[in-house]
Structure formats: C-alpha cells, structure tokens
Nucleic acid binder design. Structure first.
Lengths: 196, 196
DNA sequence: TCTCTATTTTCATTGCAGGAAAATAATTTG
DNA sequence: CAAATTATTTTCCTGCAATGAAAATAGAGA
C-alpha cells in the first residue's frame, strides 16, 4: 500500500493543481483534454483531485499536450515576491558583538531569497568614536529618519541630518557616527556585488 | 502497452543515469540504497538501466534519501560552460552594414548563453575618420594585437600600440580609428549592464 | 422543471512496477 | 589462478494502483 508520509510528501508538489491550472488556462474540458492525450476524463479528474498519482508516461502525455517539460510539475511556481517583516519578528543585532555597540541594525527583508538589495533599519547610538571601518561590494544608500549622522567615506566626513540621503560605493572603508544627543535612526540599503 | 514514442521521450530525462550518479557519488551499492529506501536492489538496477519507469512514490523515496527534490530528475543538469569557436565557423560582421565599414568584428563566445562577458576579435581598417560614436552599458576592454588604434572616449583620444590594453566605462560615447598603415587587430571584451 | 454538458465517483480490469531469488559479472583473497 | 565474496543483472511472478467505461452527480441554460 501507499505509505501515508510518502503520499503526503508527493502532494506537496500539487501535481493535480498544476494540471488543472494548465487545463483551465487553455479553457479545455476534461473530455477534450482526454481526446488530446488519449486519457479518460475520469482519470484526469482523479489526477487533478489528487486521488491518484499518475505514472510518468501518463504525466508525460499531458506535458506534451501543454508543451511543458515534466519539471513543470516538480518545480515550485514562480510566485511574485511578497514578504512582510514585522517589528516584533525582526532580530536586532549589534554591529560588534564583542564590544559596546556603535549601532544596532535589523534586516527589513531577510525572508527574501536572492535579493537584489538588502534593507536595514539601523539605530546609531551617540558615541565619541565612529564605528569600525568596513567595506563590502556594491552600493549603499543611507536615509536618515531621525537624529544626525556623520559618515566617513572616500576620505570625507559627510554630515547627514534628518531626511538627508547618501549613496556611495560601499567597496571602500566607511564608518558611521551618531552626532545627535539622542540616537539616530536610519534606513540603509545595500546592493550586492556587481558582476564583472 | 507503453507507446514507443512516449517511452523514448521519457528516456530523454535520463532518470536512470541521474539516479546512478547520485548513488555512485555517495559510494552506495544497490543493496545499500535498497535498505535506505525500502526498495529492492533488483528494481533499482532496472530503473538505473532504464528498463522500467519508477512510479512517483518510488522516485520520491530515492529523492528523499538523497535530499533532492523530484525536479532533480526532470531538469537538465548544470554542465560547466565549455564552448569552442573555430575561426572558420565564426561570422565576421561589419560595424555598419549600410556604409563602408570602419572595422569588422567576430564574436569569440557566441555559443555561450547568459554570458557575463562578450569577447570579440576585431579588425580595424585604416581610415581617415573614426567609427560612429556608440555606447552600451558595462565596461569594455580593448587589447591591441597588431597595428595601432586610437580610441575616442570620455572626451580624450587614447593611442594604443601593439600590446596595449585599455579598459573604460562603455556607457559613454566612444569611437575607434585605426592609425596604422595596415589594419589593426584587437581583442575586445565587454561586460553587460551591472544591476542596480 | 427539464435538458444538456461537465465533472466526479463507482466498479472492474490489467499493465506494469516491484519483490524474491537465481544467474551472471566483477572484485578480492589466499 | 581458483576460490570466495560481493555487486549487479535478469528471470519469473505477484499484487496493486493506475486506468478506462460507464453510471451518478452536479451545474448551467432555457
């Protein structure tokens, strides 16, 4: 008999749903698809409803009719990216775990895989000294939400006030320092390394 | 009975070969894999040799053991890029199909899809006037193999002699002109647009 | 309500996946 | 080289799950 777990696991591929999508996209009825594939309407119904698992030859028949490869039924459909992160769910990390932090940051888009950008909400703490210099490939944009921030980059000190934004090549050492009495909130976006 | 064409088509997925690869990578015997999957060695052999097509539950069992999704068996394996272009096979195109050409170029890597670079062998012809200005995203590198070449870029005229190389941001208008009596051979590489 | 169409379910059939074990091939060992 | 051991392939058979045919149900017009 067909094991329960095996069956459940297979169902995660949603083979039936995918077949039904293909069919309804083309506006075909079960019987019509049956004619094209040489399969019975009844069986197609059962496959779509997940009551049976088609054999590979059977699955191939419908694949051929719809002009898709078998991988169509085994790969996750490309869903438009849509990820929400709530404040309470986000992890707040210090810039330096081994010393008194200069700032804290939390990723705003950590659930997005292969992201073409990374966005952080950072809180820079009032300090005499700037943060440790660091660099990373790509560009960086800093938008100050509240407080004032001094950025050391390309040998310059750039003072940012509320509402100011700065974009720079992040592949040179840069530092941050909060210059306001209260901490400085900022929105930071980085892009990964460019090819070439 | 299982149709001939259907069977042939299914064989193009090389399910058996993929299974055998997975197994030999891990250095498992048929019997050992059988223990892990709960399948008989004999049947695994038949599947690997393409004598039978496994049912989805069966295929899923081995998938689970090897930690791959079912799509593994239905997608083309990523083969390392390896493409050769021979001089005689390459197409030699003029820079301007509607006028007397300033140079001729041939792609050295046209078979490579989604290439992170494009390489050309170019022959610049002796001319009074430079080629028409053009631009394209990304970087460009020019390495002179023979003859001399004058490049107009960023408002400068750069003279290149044999062995010289120039790299520049190609997203500004640039021109070429051969300044030697005989034509100038050069190796040109461009990178596509950078993201961001 | 009746008719027509599409889908789902029931029931019976069977083709083929799959197991057990024998046969063969490949390796190892003395 | 044999003999022994291990791995693989093949043979034969069985069972069951996929499949088809057709009845039952649901839906859509009219």
């Amino acid at each position: 008999m067909l094991s329960e777990t095996l069956s459940n696991e297979l169902e995660t591929y949603r083979i039936g749903e995918k077949l039904r999508s293909l069919r309804s996209e083309k506006g075909l009825g079960l019987a019509q698809l049956g004619e094209h594939t040489g399969l019975s309407a009844g069986m197609l119904s059962k496959i779509e409803r997940g009551q049976i698992f088609p054999t590979l030859p059977t699955l191939l028949r419908v694949s051929l009719v719809f002009g898709v490869g078998l991988e169509h039924f085994f790969t996750a459909p490309e869903t438009p990216i849509l990820e929400v992160t709530r404040r309470k769910d986000r992890l707040r990390l210090p810039d330096d775990p081994n010393a008194a932090p200069t700032y804290l940051f939390e990723s705003l888009d950590y659930p997005v895989s292969e992201r073409p950008m990374e966005a952080f909400l950072s809180e820079f703490l009032p300090r005499r000294k700037a943060s440790r210099p660091h660099r990373h490939p790509g560009m960086e944009l800093v938008h100050v939400i509240s407080g004032t921030l001094e950025l050391g980059i390309h040998g310059k000190q750039v003072k940012l006030e509320e509402g100011d934004a700065l974009t720079f090549d992040a592949d040179h050492d840069h530092t941050y320092r909060c210059t306001s009495e209260k901490s400085c909130q900022a929105f930071v976006v980085t892009t990964p390394a460019k090819p070439g």
